[in-house]
Amino acid sequence: MSQNTKNYYLPGPSFWPAIAATALFLLAGGFAMALNNIAPGKLLMVAGGVIFAYLLFGWFSEVIGESISKVYNKQVDKSFRWGMGWFIFSEVMFFFGFFGALFYARNVSLHWLADAQLLWPGFVASWPSAGPAAKEAFTPMAAWGIPAINTLILLSSGATLTWAHWGLMKNNRKQLAMGLILTIALGATFLFLQAHEYAEAGFTIKTGIYGATFYMLTGFHGLHVTLGAIMLTVILIRVLKGHFDSHNHFGFEAVAWYWHFVDVVWLFLFIFVYWL
């Protein structure tokens, strides 16, 4: 084993990538069929989803196994850091696109619509808006109820996660586990409140540009929180199994980075979607 730590670890042939391609193919093809009411679409999606779950489980188990058996040297660890960092950057750009749409609608297209009196007599640009053809008024989401509480929740979950990290560095496993449990609990509370907010909302995704941007931005964010919470749970299980030590715990850090990124996205959401 020891010679491995000298050289960069190169995995041998692997079936996982081909399985990933298959899973995504079934998911995508099935979804396209389902959207157009072609019968086996949903079935294919389910199959794709199952394979995908199997894939995630299998591939990550393999990587974790490799990590535990210490075939990764410092350089591999650094690769993981670069990789995760740029992955998060790509996610930032994904959200950037949707925020761009929000800014554009609020600051540009609504004003042009209001100028086009020939087509939309009487329409005035204002935010929130469901557009010039909207028939009924709707109640937009207020910032200072649940959203403000959710902001506090996510911010404190960032703090508990950092506290867990401190525990890990001091080799205080109890603090580590406690911190993780708290973070996951906060994340779950956030999701619960978010679901509650959706259920009570006075508008839908079809409510013009306001509904569209609101649900797309908060929805994708919620999806990321869900993913983050699942990843934290995996890390918690690994911690309980005794994985990680104060030097070697990139898995933990990667998930922590991801969690903080999701946190920051929320701050922008809170400011631009709910508040201003």
Binding site: L35, A101, Y104, A105, V108, S109, L110, W112, L113, L119, S129, A130, G131, P132, A133, A134, T204, I205, K206, T207, G208, I209, Y210, G211, A212, T213, Y215, M216
Partner: peptide, 18 residues
């Protein structure tokens, strides 16, 4: 196309040019 959003539809305040 499928979920009723109005990103690119003027009637709902969206814009094809977006």
């Amino acid at each position: 196309r499928h979920f009723g959003t109005h990103f690119f539809n003027a009637a709902g305040g969206g814009d094809p040019v977006l």
